[in-house]
């Protein structure tokens, strides 16, 4: 139920929460965002994939934290108390995406939307739906499902 609502809304609503990872701007569809957190106590999960930072407690629900930097094979940035994370729901489970910083919510029009350039890094290509041209920046729209499903494999 919830998922389809998001998908439908994705098409009409063009609101994105912008986040920064390694100086790159990413957009996450705003309706997918459940929460924005800072400085959570994360319990490490032994033997898990390196991009899984651990689990945390969000109002009684167990949330799995994903280190997006590691997921995108970017340089490590030690997770600390001030690390920001965006909580998204995927397949009835909550995930907390640890990113560098959280920016504004942008309302964007279709005409500035472009498909992924063919030269994009295949890994990034995989998690990107497309790119918006902002005035002085490029915004990669993050495909949260792909981002999380990859980890599953």
């Amino acid at each position: 139920m919830h998922d389809t609502a998001i998908n439908q809304n994705e098409l009409v609503s063009k609101d994105y929460l912008t986040v920064t990872i390694a100086d790159q701007l990413f957009g996450i569809p705003v309706l997918q965002v459940q929460d924005v957190l800072r400085g959570q106590v994360v319990t490490k999960v032994p033997l898990a994939a390196p991009e899984i930072a651990g689990s945390l407690n969000l109002r009684g629900r167990v949330v799995t934290a994903i280190d997006v930097r590691k997921r995108l094979k970017l340089e490590d940035n030690a997770i600390n108390k001030n690390s920001m994370s965006v909580v998204v729901e995927h397949g009835h489970e909550l995930y907390s995406l640890i990113i560098d910083s959280v920016g504004d919510v942008l309302s964007l029009k279709d005409k500035v939307f472009e498909k992924n350039p063919g030269t994009l890094d295949p890994l990034w290509m995989d998690i990107s739906i497309g790119i918006y041209q902002l005035e002085d920046d490029l915004l990669i729209i993050m495909d949260v499902a792909r981002l999380l499903e990859y980890v599953n494999n």
Binding site: T43, V45, A48, I52, G54, N57, V62, T64
Partner: peptide, 27 residues
């Protein structure tokens, strides 16, 4: 007992996770 996230399902050493009285998550 709360089921582990799908992402962690293949780690057979855990049967779930839980939140303790102090609010921390443990496996």
């Amino acid at each position: 007992v709360k089921p582990v996230a799908k992402i962690l399902k293949d780690i057979t050493l855990f049967s779930g996770n839980t939140i303790l009285g102090d609010g921390s998550v443990i496996m």
